[in-house]
Design a protein around this nucleic acid. Structure first.
Length: 217
DNA sequence: GAGGAGATCGTCT
DNA sequence: GACGATCTCCTCT
């Protein structure tokens, strides 16, 4: 029995497109992590597109290395990297095999397995009422490093895993959720190509991360 | 609630 | 040896 109702696993073709198209299309979809105990799920409310070798802010800008090889591979594969000495960030590869491109998952709205995700992040859930507090829920997966922590994502464990294969414990599904309005702003936390409008998020969603939650003037 | 600085380490030059 | 697609804590208002 699926606690999430009827869902459709996204296929490789979904990711075999321009990262801008994929980043926008991923808004509102669900990321699922299957654990031995339960199903962790979060709705994607914020993404950023990284365009490949022509995008100065992308890891793939300087060409293929051992670290970023996934971005140059087939679409729909998890790219996980370690940043600032403390955090992992989760991406998915886009574009055909041989062409670089990816989408960074920046924020999730917790949907299922909330207690387990909170525990993974050391966010305290004392009573059921805490599950209703936005201030508490935001600490779970509002931000790239937090999101990875909540799902237990690490480079050792998840880099190169396929999002589009039922074999793996990490996948992205469509549960039919309709997003009312998607806003686009410049990306966050980068210096190069900082003004390109490549960040996508659900307008008014409380779980979107970062200071810029409205489009620049 | 907002702003600033420190933590901490893999990757690339 | 420098830096980074971040988070948390602390201080100030």
């Amino acid at each position: 029995m699926n606690v999430l109702g009827r869902t459709t696993l996204l296929k490789a073709e979904f990711f075999n497109r321009d990262p801008r198209t994929v980043a926008r299309a991923l808004i509102g979809k669900l990321i699922i992590r299957k654990t031995p105990h339960e199903m962790l799920a979060g709705r994607i409310v914020e993404t950023e597109a990284y365009l490949g070798e022509n995008d100065a802010a992308a890891h793939s800008a300087a060409g293929k290395t051992a670290r970023n090889a996934v971005l140059f591979g087939p679409p729909g594969i998890a790219y996980v990297y370690f940043i600032y000495g403390n955090h992992y960030c989760l991406n998915v590869s886009c574009m055909p095999d041989g062409v670089a491109g990816g989408v960074l998952f920046r924020a999730l709205e917790p949907v299922s397995g909330i207690r387990e995700m909170a525990a993974a992040r050391d966010v305290e859930i004392v009573e059921d009422a805490d599950l209703q507090k936005i201030s508490t829920l935001k600490k779970i997966s509002s931000g790239p490093g937090r999101l990875a922590g909540a799902l237990g994502v690490t480079r050792e464990r998840d880099n190169e895993k396929s999002f589009v294969s039922a074999r793996w414990d990490l996948r992205i599904v469509d549960d039919g959720y309709r997003v009312r309005r998607i806003l686009v702003t410049p990306r966050i936390g980068i210096v190069k190509a900082a003004e390109e409008p490549l960040r996508y998020f659900i307008a008014g969603n409380l779980f979107v991360s970062g200071p810029r939650q409205v489009p620049a003037e």
